Simulated assay, not measured.
Amino acid sequence: MQERVLWCFSSCTIKSRLFLAMTLQLRVYVPPHPLIKHWLAVARDAGTPSVLFRSAMTELGRWLTYEAARDWLPTQETAVQTPLDTCPATVIDPQIPVAVVPILRAGLGLLEGAQTLLPLASVYHLGLARDEETLQPHCYLNKLPEKFDPQTRVLITDPMLATGGSIMATMAELTQRGADPSLTRIVCVVAAPPALQKLSEAYPGLIVYTATIDEKLNSKGFIVPGLGDAGDRTFGT
């Protein structure tokens, strides 16, 4: 299996290492896939027009979801009849529910790519807007179910994990409805240490898949170098 970069976040330190032993702390995978690197470069470029930026988001959603699904989707063993004989086979277990939760607006940019790989997943929209003065999120739309089946695999799509406000609010909503953090995956494009540190402290065992990790935020809470406002760039606003 191809090696993937693993960042482990503990409550007091940030450690970079290769894919090693599982520990009860946040794990952040940065897959070294050339297509992920290519579309990240397209998305970062300030000269990329909105229509191409949307394509980049779709492709990043597709390939990051592919990586996230690798050891996450439930399977079951069965047998199939080939034209010549019967043989053992592994299929996705249809009895285990899968849900995708895009954080609006920007999470919709990654949703299309994710759905190409998870076509039968339920989609629950969660709308969060950040107050630019306080940097705190407020919810304007919540289509989450009252209760998740405890076995549900939940995939969250949100291009930017910056201050951590929106993703922490999302995790709080999900867990109070029965979602298991250990069965939850977050797909984002750019992550920053403040958000990852908060997730690590609150939800050890959670796993994040991101195209890159940037080192800092500016005074307005935007990731630097980042890729700007992913929602505005996706929808041309």
Results as ranks from 00 to 15, higher is better:
92 I>Q: 06
132 E>K: 15
72 W>E: 07
71 D>E: 15
134 T>M: 11
120 L>T: 13
12 C>Y: 05
125 H>M: 03
5 V>W: 10
85 D>N: 11
49 P>S: 06
130 R>I: 15
60 L>R: 07
17 R>Y: 05
38 H>Y: 14
127 G>A: 14
77 E>R: 10
71 D>T: 13
76 Q>I: 14
132 E>A: 09
45 D>G: 00
26 L>H: 04
64 L>A: 12
17 R>S: 15
116 T>F: 02
39 W>D: 02
44 R>F: 03
53 F>T: 00
20 L>V: 01
77 E>I: 01
125 H>V: 03
24 L>S: 03
81 Q>P: 02
66 Y>I: 00
122 S>L: 15
85 D>Q: 14
65 T>H: 01
95 Q>H: 13
27 R>Q: 14
79 A>I: 10
65 T>V: 08
94 P>W: 09
103 I>A: 01
35 L>E: 10
65 T>Y: 04
98 V>K: 09
115 Q>G: 01
11 S>C: 11
5 V>T: 13
122 S>F: 08
97 P>F: 03
136 Q>N: 07
57 M>V: 04
123 V>E: 02
101 V>D: 06
47 G>Q: 15
41 A>Y: 11
33 H>M: 10
133 E>I: 12
10 S>E: 14
27 R>T: 12
41 A>H: 10
59 E>D: 01
75 T>E: 12
16 S>T: 07
39 W>K: 14
117 L>Y: 09
110 L>V: 07
43 A>Y: 06
123 V>Y: 02
46 A>D: 08
30 V>F: 07
28 V>Q: 01
19 F>Y: 10
76 Q>T: 11
42 V>I: 15
74 P>L: 05
90 T>Q: 08
46 A>C: 09
50 S>E: 09
38 H>G: 03
81 Q>V: 15
122 S>P: 01
100 V>A: 11
73 L>P: 04
7 W>A: 09
31 P>Q: 10
37 K>R: 14
136 Q>L: 15
71 D>S: 12
10 S>I: 00
5 V>I: 11
121 A>Y: 14
51 V>T: 06
84 L>F: 10
91 V>Y: 04
127 G>I: 15
47 G>S: 11
77 E>N: 10
113 G>A: 09
16 S>Q: 07
16 S>C: 04
54 R>T: 14
127 G>Q: 12
61 G>L: 09
40 L>V: 08
56 A>K: 14
76 Q>C: 12
13 T>M: 05
84 L>H: 09
103 I>K: 01
125 H>D: 03
123 V>I: 15
13 T>P: 00
118 L>A: 07
81 Q>L: 11
25 Q>D: 11
89 A>K: 03
30 V>R: 07
105 R>N: 11
22 M>S: 02
46 A>P: 10
42 V>Q: 06
131 D>R: 04
89 A>W: 08
122 S>T: 13
107 G>L: 10
80 V>Y: 02
121 A>E: 00
96 I>F: 05
30 V>T: 13
25 Q>Y: 07
108 L>E: 12
92 I>S: 01
122 S>H: 12
132 E>I: 06
108 L>G: 04
6 L>W: 01
80 V>F: 05
48 T>F: 01
74 P>T: 04
